[in-house]
C-alpha cells in the first residue's frame, strides 16, 4: 500500500444527514477515523451515536452526505456488501441469535471467511469438511481471545450479560474485519470487566484492527481511545484527542449542564 493510501483516513464521514420524518437524528456531521486507531464516539443519550453506527453499517441510508471507507462510498450499499468490505459491529442491546450455542454464534460470524461454497458444504465434500474444521478452529481461537472458549457448547442466551457482550465481539471478529464498530461494549459491566474490554481493544488495535467505539465511561475513553468524536443532537461538538475534547467548554456543557448554571450553584454555596 502506498504512503498516500496509508495516511488517508480509513473511514470518512462528510456532512452526513439522517432525518426520520421531521426528526433530525444526525444533522450534517463530519469526522474521520484514522487507520490503526481506537476512536471513541461519545455524547449524551439520544445524540445520534447508534444512528451513526447504523448508517456506517448500511442498516440505515443517509438522507444526504457521504460515508467513505478506504475511499469507497457506502451510502447506497446493502449491509452485506459493507460487511464484505471489512466492517463489522456489535449492538447496544446484545443481539445474539436465539437457540444457538456460543460456538455457533461465532461460526455464523465467520460466514465471509468460510472458504467454501454453500453447495459444496451441503454435499459434505472432504474439502468442505476441512474448511469447516479450520473455521471452527478460528472461531474457537476468537472465543479464547475473549475468554469464552470454555463455554463454547452452551446456549448463549443462558449466559450472563457481560459474557454475551464478549461473545458478540468474537462474532464480529469472525470475518477478519478491518474496522470494528463497538456500540457501548462495556455497558452493564463492572470496572474490572470494562478494563478487560479496554485491554482487548488495545490488543486488537496492535494486531492491525481499527476500532470505532461508542462509550459512556469517560475514564475508559481517556485511557483507551487515541482519538474521539463528541456529538450532541446529531451535531459535532468536538473531535481530536480525548483529553482536549473533554476539556472543551461545549462538551462540558453538554454533559454537565450550562456553565452559567454551574457557576450559580458555586455562588449559592
Amino acid at each position: 500500500m502506498s504512503d498516500a493510501a496509508l495516511s488517508r483516513p480509513l473511514l470518512e464521514l462528510d456532512t452526513v444527514v439522517k432525518t426520520f420524518g421531521g426528526v433530525t437524528a444526525v444533522g450534517g456531521l463530519s469526522t474521520r477515523v484514522t487507520r490503526g486507531s481506537v476512536h471513541g464516539l461519545i455524547g449524551p443519550n439520544g445524540a445520534g451515536k447508534t444512528t451513526l453506527i447504523n448508517l456506517i453499517t448500511g442498516l440505515f441510508h443517509p438522507t444526504s452526505g457521504a460515508i467513505r471507507f478506504e475511499g469507497r462510498s457506502l451510502e447506497a450499499m446493502q449491509p452485506q456488501a459493507i460487511a464484505t468490505l471489512g466492517i463489522t459491529r456489535t449492538y447496544q442491546n446484545v443481539r445474539l441469535f436465539s437457540g444457538m450455542t456460543v460456538l455457533e454464534q461465532v461460526m455464523t460470524g465467520c460466514w465471509l471467511t468460510r472458504e467454501v461454497g454453500v453447495f459444496a458444504s451441503f454435499l459434505g465434500l472432504p474439502s468442505a469438511r476441512a474448511a469447516w474444521v479450520r473455521t471452527r478452529e478460528h472461531a474457537l481461537s476468537l472465543l479464547a481471545r475473549v475468554s469464552m472458549d470454555h463455554r463454547a457448547d452452551e446456549l448463549a442466551e443462558t449466559l450472563s450479560y457481560g459474557e454475551q457482550r464478549r461473545i458478540e465481539i468474537a462474532r464480529a471478529l469472525g470475518s477478519r474485519p478491518k474496522l470494528l464498530l463497538l456500540d457501548e461494549p462495556t455497558a452493564g459491566m463492572n470496572h474490572q470487566e470494562a478494563t478487560a474490554i479496554g485491554r482487548l481493544v488495545h490488543e486488537l488495535r496492535d494486531a492491525g484492527l481499527t476500532i470505532l467505539m461508542v462509550e459512556h465511561n469517560m475514564g475508559l475513553v481517556t485511557e483507551f481511545c487515541d482519538d474521539c468524536t463528541v456529538v450532541n443532537f446529531g451535531r459535532l461538538l468536538a473531535t481530536g484527542d480525548p483529553a482536549t475534547c473533554l476539556a472543551d467548554p461545549d462538551v462540558q456543557e453538554a454533559y454537565f449542564g450550562r456553565k452559567t448554571d454551574a457557576e450559580r450553584i458555586q455562588a449559592l454555596r
Binding site: T57, G58, L59, Q78, P79, Q80, I82, A83, T84, T88, R89, Y91, R95, F97, S98, G99, M100, E104, M107, T108, G109, W111, L112, R114, V116, V118, S121, F122, L123, G124, W132, R171, A172, G174, S175
Partner: peptide, 27 residues
Amino acid sequence: RLHRSWYGLAARAVREDAAVASTMGIP
C-alpha cells in the same frame, strides 16, 4: 445435510435476526 451445512447456519441466523445476519455478510 442442509441443517449441518453453512446454509443451515445462515438460515438460522436470518430467521432469528435478518438485520444482524446482513451485517455479518449473510444476504
